[in-house]
Design a protein around this nucleic acid. Sequence first.
DNA 1: ACGATTGCCGCAATCGATTGGGCAACAGTA
DNA 2: TACTGTTGCCCAATCGATTGCGGCAATCGT
Lengths: 367, 367
Amino acid sequence: MTAKNPAETATPQSGASKSAAPKSAAPLRPVTQRTISQEFGISVSTVSRVLNDPETASGRWASPDLVERIIAFAQKHGYHRNPHAASLRTSRSNLIGVLVPRLQDFVLATIYEGIEEAATERDISSFVTNSLDLPANQLQRTRMMLDRRVDGLIFGDAHLDDPFLDDLAAEGVNFVLASRRAGDHTSVTCDDVRGGELVAEHLLAIGRTDVAILAGREYASTSIDRTRGLVERLAQDGITVRPDWIMHDGFDAAGGRESAEKIFASGDFPNAVFATNDFAAIGAIGVMRDHGLSVPDDVALIGYNDTPLAAEIVTPLTTVRSPMHEMGRRALGLLLDKIAGAEVDSLRLEPELIVRASTRVSGQRSG
Amino acid sequence: MTAKNPAETATPQSGASKSAAPKSAAPLRPVTQRTISQEFGISVSTVSRVLNDPETASGRWASPDLVERIIAFAQKHGYHRNPHAASLRTSRSNLIGVLVPRLQDFVLATIYEGIEEAATERDISSFVTNSLDLPANQLQRTRMMLDRRVDGLIFGDAHLDDPFLDDLAAEGVNFVLASRRAGDHTSVTCDDVRGGELVAEHLLAIGRTDVAILAGREYASTSIDRTRGLVERLAQDGITVRPDWIMHDGFDAAGGRESAEKIFASGDFPNAVFATNDFAAIGAIGVMRDHGLSVPDDVALIGYNDTPLAAEIVTPLTTVRSPMHEMGRRALGLLLDKIAGAEVDSLRLEPELIVRASTRVSGQRSG
DNA sequence: ACGATTGCCGCAATCGATTGGGCAACAGTA
DNA sequence: TACTGTTGCCCAATCGATTGCGGCAATCGT
């Protein structure tokens, strides 16, 4: 076993098919500008200019007729600019790098989809990588991306007060934060404080204010801000959240369970639970059931992000919808502006409360 | 002399590092091999050889002492090879592209994490992109990656009998499939037929063989093979699965709900449901509850992939564990071997049944 | 002391695209 | 005919790294 296991389950059906087609096709003739220039007996410069900007080149650098023929030829023979060569010359790679804590996290995966979508529209490519929220990884992965000569970076894994980002900014690296904010760096976030307030207002409305918070990591602004919004809004109504009911564990189902277990292990129970993440909320449900508590009758439950699963589970989850996809798109836009040299301001998008069964309690008071 | 260039590299920052760096940090002088060669008064060739293979170079191309000094200098001044330049010369990019249906899908995100992890270990980078399982996207994204000069590709979104892959193979492009198989192309999969059989055996053991299948898309081998494994194994015991109970919808929660709704809309109900994806299974739970059916008493439920959530939901889910992360790692390994020119065989990893509450029925028969 | 090794390292061509500086050829004007 | 302006296009240098060929000099052998 520990061996180098050569074949493991090497399906020996290899000999199958494949016999036809010797080696054929695509030897090694990538059509380059030179190929084209030779074809027409002109210089590569002309080809380059025409291919880069047919409009301007037409008449200025080549006769309209030639322009047309060059483009047709390129198209026909599948010419594709070699981005490495271009990048070498222009020192622009049309590549942007993205760091996320973890793609397994639905929220970050969605934000990345937004980034990728927007990038593709503008004909630039993007790289993602997982940092697992580990500072060492953030540094190492960022280095790797910079080595790859990305034009800019988007961080979805910013830690509050991280000197790392300050250093990067000082180095003149272009970057934008998404989802989480940090320091004064440009960021695109959902208004998390407002999100917390929405939750507070809803809890006040249904009269469930003995709330426990599955807050998530304390280095994430999302965690801190959502919690703060909730706590401060309740404070306005003279209600205090028990400090020992604010738990900081992971953002996933396991983290939610972990936090919930600590809370419900004590004698008295909250009559509401707010998780800063839908998955954490789902993880908490099991714990409550084990304690014979039902949602929402005994404990009202609120999640965050309005993940698709939130609406599909047995007791649909009340949650705060955040524009994840949009945050990704915006982040890319801001980054591009920044790269272009513009001054950009941070963006804060609006959250929206989605009420579902998990907080539909009877005996709801009106004020 | 053509001596057009008077000063050429007359580093004007000669007076450099004078006062306490006014503009500070990273202006625009990326340390190149030339920088180093000038520092030591040697040629860039020597620098290149030393930097690429210190061991061999030492003694052959430079004195051990020089080698050491070059490396120290490079380290100190933050030299980083420009991959574009290197790629241009060697026509190898150390870049591999990955296509997945969607990163939002936990399964694919995990496979990608495996790929990325393995790639990073070998100092190569990877690109992902979502195809949404749309052929047009697959083609367009693949083109984009090829334009970016990737050394090879990993497809996590292969469609059965897709001529697209055959064309690609004919063109001599190196690629490997992950998760799904297709044609005779090299692939790394979980033994899905076996997975289906495991489910069948479990259902036989608990005496629940009126099974409905939330199969997923028919163009995915995972969907087809898992279904086949289940159906054929039951057939061995003379049991037939109702064709109208084999539903083909999406792999996510919404897809699961959709399929389940169709099934439970009819008069008679199955006493077991097999979803080829945990999320689809979760989506189905709500539907069953709406029909007043409980899991597992009325309907036993089995998912697939052993997603973390499977263990965390209220009624923990029986599921088939597939080595997602490992599939990703292996796929990368195979691809690299292939790029290196080796003949590689497809790999089929073993699935494992994980029994949980969702199939713990009373009245369980022993045969 | 002289030819043969061996140790160290440079030259120059490439890779593909981009661009500033120019050079012809032709039209128009004096 | 001589000159100035345009128009149309090409030369050659760059970008940074890689690599096949060699070259020069110190050292060794006899």
